[in-house]
Amino acid sequence: MSPASRTLAVVEATRLRGHDPEYHAYVQVLVGGVVRAAEADGWTVTRLAADEGTDALLAATERADAAVIVGGEDIAPRFYGASGGYPHESLHRETADAAQLALVHRAIERGMPLLGICRGLQIVNVALGGTLVQDLGDGDHVRRGVPIPEVLTTHPVLLEPGSRVEELLGGPVVSVRSAHHQAVDVVGEALVVTGRAPDGHVEAIEHESAPILAVQWHPEDPGAPAGQLAALLGSLRSRARAAVGAVAAVATAA
């Protein structure tokens, strides 16, 4: 796969949050960080909004070599068999939820590398039948009553020895920037927990066989450790190249 052919879909829930401009502005900082890091790594980036619908998102990512699902609002509880009315419940974007869930399923079917960040991790888990803790309460994962750019906290994550994420980030313990009030509860089918916070909550998951990895924290935050996002994006690059090579080998054999 030549660098010119490397296309990365960066998929956010929406590009419009007129009801909450402060939150929207900070999301743009985070998504912009992913886009810039990917472009610096040689990707041709397409930035997509999932609230345009499932058909539109699948069509727009038809020829993508890899995808990143970034952060955003809570997933609508109906997608994981739960009800609303929980503390700190956000606006739900069910059209975006359905589209991103469909993208995960297709990524698995086709072997397309996919990285989930924050909401993206929860999308991956729910897509494979997992559930969520709907509110973690006050603690180490989010700060309340502060300006939006200050809601992230810094805490360690314990990585599973021998996991992809441990190999990428170079050690059993990493420092992360995090802001989430929900977390994985029941782990989805074929997913393996490869990172936890000191309080036990899931911080990283990987698929048993598909090239899918997701983290609950924000490696794209301006205050995140240098090189963390680049390392995770590097995994997409190597796996996308491997996938293209496998397809070429099959075509040659045929």
Rank of each mutant, 00 (worst) to 15 (best):
F79A: 06
V173P: 02
P161W: 07
G120I: 13
E52L: 14
G81N: 02
T154W: 03
R78Y: 08
M112H: 10
S163T: 06
V165C: 11
A59Q: 14
D74G: 04
Q122A: 03
V104L: 02
P77M: 03
V173I: 11
T154Y: 05
P113T: 13
A76R: 05
A99I: 04
L101D: 00
A98G: 08
P147S: 12
G137L: 06
S90E: 15
Q122N: 05
A59G: 14
L103N: 06
G84F: 03
A67W: 08
A96H: 07
C118V: 11
V157L: 07
H88E: 14
A76G: 10
G81T: 00
A107G: 15
L158S: 10
E62I: 04
V142R: 14
M112R: 15
A96K: 04
A99R: 10
S83T: 14
G139I: 11
E167M: 06
G84R: 07
L136W: 05
E150M: 13
A107W: 03
F79Q: 07
N125R: 00
D140H: 08
P113V: 11
I117D: 12
V146S: 09
A60R: 04
Y86G: 02
Q100W: 02
T54Y: 05
G71C: 09
M112K: 13
G85M: 04
